[in-house]
């Protein structure tokens, strides 16, 4: 039961920001940052550093020692004097990340999406999808100052506005669901728990 009361206190402390920025909110905010940062550090230890490095080394497999040491070098970034050493471990995962991005987004996003737009313009919907994609693309075309291109991108902006309108609607829907669940908690688990 205490847990629910503690959770209810912090929920109301955050909601108090609606009235205005106040010390209770600031206190709750800093407690949140402290607890969550401490949580992330402990989780990183238990999910990677311990099982993939420490336990394996204790079992005699010394291979993970190398990334482990490189990881410790990474921590040197916190000391300004030795910051340059941290560049090498960072280089590895920046390089891997960059290459993965290039492959993934070419195959899964570019080619697949372009192929998905190669529809026979027989049905109205297909025609609208093709037209919409092409005109929206011209809106993001900055290379040429072209007279009738600007008319085409005017249609494109229309499609973009409809899309952002739909995104506005779904965002309102999503945020309301969050609020509903907080009220659900306050009503049934906190207050309900008391009756």
């Amino acid at each position: 039961m205490i847990g629910t009361w503690v959770a209810a206190f912090f929920t109301l402390a955050i909601f108090s920001f609606l009235y205005r920025d106040n010390p209770i909110y600031r206190l709750a905010e800093h407690i949140f940052i402290g607890i969550s940062t401490g949580y992330y550090i402990a989780v990183q230890w238990h999910s990677v550093v311990k099982p993939n490095v420490v336990d394996k080394v204790l079992l005699g497999d010394y291979l993970p020692l190398i990334p482990g040491v490189l990881g410790l070098l990474l921590l040197l970034r916190l000391i300004p004097k030795y910051q340059w050493i941290a560049r090498y471990p960072i280089a590895i995962y920046i390089g891997v990340g960059a290459a993965l991005n290039m492959i993934q987004y070419t195959q899964g996003f570019l080619i697949a999406q372009i192929q998905g737009t190669m529809l026979s313009p027989t049905s109205i919907n297909n025609l609208l999808i093709i037209l919409g994609t092409l005109t929206s693309l011209t809106y993001f075309f900055f290379a040429l100052e072209h007279k009738h291109l600007s008319k085409v991108s005017k249609i494109g902006i229309g499609f973009l506005m409809l899309s952002f309108g739909a995104a506005y609607g779904t965002t309102v829907m999503g945020r309301l669901s969050l609020l509903i669940s907080r009220f659900d908690f306050l009503l049934f688990e906190w207050l309900g728990g008391m009756f």
Binding site: Q104, Q107, G108, F109, A112, G116, A166, A167, T170, G174
Partner: peptide, 30 residues
């Protein structure tokens, strides 16, 4: 989508927050 499906061939579906519905509608169509 880009690795799980394209490289490993495992079909997938997604359960997303309302905010992301418009973005992933395009991937249902393809």
């Amino acid at each position: 989508i880009t690795i799980g499906l394209a490289q490993f061939g495992v079909p997938l579906a997604a359960g997303v927050t309302a905010v992301s519905i418009p973005q992933y509608e395009a991937f249902v169509q393809t």
